[in-house]
């Protein structure tokens, strides 16, 4: 089975200032404290696992006052040397964008901006699969962002409505495994979204509602390695049947803020100009 053409280069941000400073999803509670040493150790563990699986990791400097900067998946979307920065839905996270932009400008990415009046939360809400970009909307990103995203990236977008506030980003419900397979959490989508994904994903690994809430879809795929925050046994068995190696990376300090492995990484090597063809 053809491996993903992307997933070997990531941007990560050390959790030096990570804390639960506000509540913008059902997982966040300000009275829950983050153990900074444990968080750092888990983050280092994830970085090490990625590198061992064969991925390169680049670093974004942490900034005080932007605790969620650690969730780089939401910084924006990178495609073939171009960066589309997010338009965060919540003011609490809008402070991150100047720091994200500074890094990408400094690293010679071309910046393509969406109109200011549409919300969009980057790779958290958009993941390539086959010839299309699956894009979630409703909770964080606006459906209206998709037509602009399609024009900027020159890619066919399939809009998926996210129904469950707990699974507020697409990357909590969908994880591309290779060119034909993906982990999917259809209970988080409406009926139209399920039909759209069914028409795109040839061999889905379907999560139950409980499995989806374990955040196991918020995983990273590096070639044949699936790096997961947790792995329910039936999911692990299916992945192994398909020939994947499962690496569990505990990131429970970050789950306190509603983020798993995928949320902590932003793929830098997506190139939809090669994986997508018109027609």
């Amino acid at each position: 089975m053809a491996e993903l053409t992307w997933g070997r280069r990531y941007l990560m941000c050390p959790p030096r200032y990570f804390e639960i400073a506000y509540e913008i999803n059902p997982w966040m509670h300000r009275d829950v404290t983050v153990d900074p040493d444990r968080a750092l150790a888990q983050w280092e563990g994830l970085r090490r696992t990625l590198e061992e699986a064969g991925a390169d990791v680049e670093l974004l400097d942490p900034v005080p006052g932007a605790p969620d900067l650690v969730f780089t998946a939401n910084a924006g979307f990178v495609n073939a040397g171009r960066f589309v920065p997010s338009n965060f839905a919540h003011p609490e996270r809008q402070v991150e964008t100047p720091h994200d932009l500074a890094w990408f400008i400094q690293h010679d990415y071309r910046i393509d901006r969406l109109p200011a009046n549409v919300h969009y939360e980057g790779a958290g809400d958009s993941l390539p699969f086959g010839k299309v970009l699956l894009a979630g909307y409703r909770t964080r990103s606006d459906a209206a962002s998709h037509v602009h995203l399609s024009a900027l990236l020159h890619v066919a977008v399939r809009s998926i409505e996210l129904l469950d506030d707990r699974l507020y980003h697409l990357d909590l419900t969908f994880c591309p495994l290779d060119e034909r397979r993906a982990i999917i959490a259809p209970t988080a989508w409406d009926a139209y979204g399920r039909r759209v994904v069914a028409s795109v994903v040839a061999e889905p690994l379907v999560l139950s509602a409980d499995e989806a809430l374990s955040f196991c879809a918020n995983s990273i795929v590096v070639g044949k390695t699936v790096i997961m925050p947790c792995c329910p046994p039936p999911v692990g068995r299916q992945l192994e049947r398909w020939g994947f190696d499962v690496a569990i990376c505990a990131v429970d300090e970050f789950l306190k803020a509603g983020g798993g492995c995928r949320c902590l990484t932003l793929p830098l090597d997506i190139d939809l100009t090669t994986s997508v063809s018109p027609g």
């Binding site: 998709h146 139209y192 979204g193 759209v196």
Partner: peptide, 13 residues
């Protein structure tokens, strides 16, 4: 309504 509204079933919705 504009976008990939046919394949995304947005128009149908």
């Amino acid at each position: 309504l504009t976008g990939h509204i046919i394949d995304s079933l947005t128009l149908a919705k």
